[in-house]
Design a protein around this nucleic acid. Sequence first.
DNA 1: TTCCATTTTCGGGAATTTTCCTATTGCAAA
DNA 2: TTTGCAATAGGAAAATTCCCGAAAATGGAA
Lengths: 217, 217
Amino acid sequence: MTTVRILLADDHVLVRAGIRSLLQQISGVEVVAEANNGREALHLVKEQRPNVVLMDIAMKDLNGIETTSRITKEFQDVHVIILSMHANEEYVLQALRAGAKGYLLKDAVFPELEFAIKAVSRGETYLSPPVSQHVIDAYRQHGFDGKGPVEQLSSRQREVLQLIAEGHTTKEIALLLNVKTKTVESHRTQLMERLGIHDVAGLVRFAIRMGIVSPEN
Amino acid sequence: MTTVRILLADDHVLVRAGIRSLLQQISGVEVVAEANNGREALHLVKEQRPNVVLMDIAMKDLNGIETTSRITKEFQDVHVIILSMHANEEYVLQALRAGAKGYLLKDAVFPELEFAIKAVSRGETYLSPPVSQHVIDAYRQHGFDGKGPVEQLSSRQREVLQLIAEGHTTKEIALLLNVKTKTVESHRTQLMERLGIHDVAGLVRFAIRMGIVSPEN
DNA sequence: TTCCATTTTCGGGAATTTTCCTATTGCAAA
DNA sequence: TTTGCAATAGGAAAATTCCCGAAAATGGAA
């Protein structure tokens, strides 16, 4: 059995170093790279082709859900485990729709980490117990067909939404994404149209409700 | 020089285990106990009398600030370092008022952790660089007399802030308040100046943090 | 492969908002 | 009474948003 190659993505250096330190105690796994945010994670996935990505859900710039969605679309053999503080139902469902194979709470016990990594690296799914309960509840209520309001947006639109809600100006966003200001303006008007929200304040509140950004920061 | 006895308080088992694992790489420090929440931390402080407490700020049940405040009141020789995700100004000030000796961001680099522990165990203070900037800013503005950022605003300014965060346009606000648009613009620029927040998205997130508006609605 | 829907990308010009600077009035504290 | 701050507001310049349109790329479906 070969070693599992892992990419760690979390924007808190201390937490990342901690998790890494934990992973070193597990045999058969190896951390091949660390990413500070979603954008960096995407790049490193391309470069390193890890088997498993351990991804924090709340990252600035490009959050964990969005990043997961892009990774799973392009690399079917890269399995993502979401690391989250909360068992929030909305988060969990979004994560699963984005193609995450695991959802682990940060107050999970240590053995769960190893178990989850081994499971998803075999292509199986692992959810922390309190999480799976939520999934089952949601399934009983409306199946998995229901697309949340966030999924109405294209991936680019979600990305722009996050950056807007983080307080970046249109110009800054254009720079970050390497496109013209006009393009970003377009994205904004189009995503506003879709959501039926026509002011920045509303966008920010929506993004917070959806867990796309946090009120802190 | 004796070893520094440390108590770890964080309600996320994984993070805690990670930090512990990091601390084991530092010579001269020893983790003598781990607490799952503030209440447990209080109990363990009494029992173990650690030199330093590494405390997460966001814990359920009894949060880090409140716990710190109780610890420092009763045990002057127990030094608390707050571990926080955010350099949020009001968190920092609250922590300092509660008697914390250190404030470390979770995206601090690893050496900072060692440095901070050594410093506070000698009775000194350590703040992550971005944090100390905030403290200095706050001090320059209004000393440590202990007014929260919300109280810095006049009541009119708070009123305008709320309306902005609720998504009203400047014109609408002017109508609501029976004043000219220009006046509302003035209020906005002035309150932005005071808060040091210069974009609407930031205002909305601030207002949500302060409980002035809710993400719903 | 061809075609259609969608996404992503931009531009021009009008309309609106924000920013910056300045200023008056009233009120309360020193 | 002088000082300071809150609340009010105007003018001009700068920046952003809005409203049109549209081309290129992508991704499936037929």
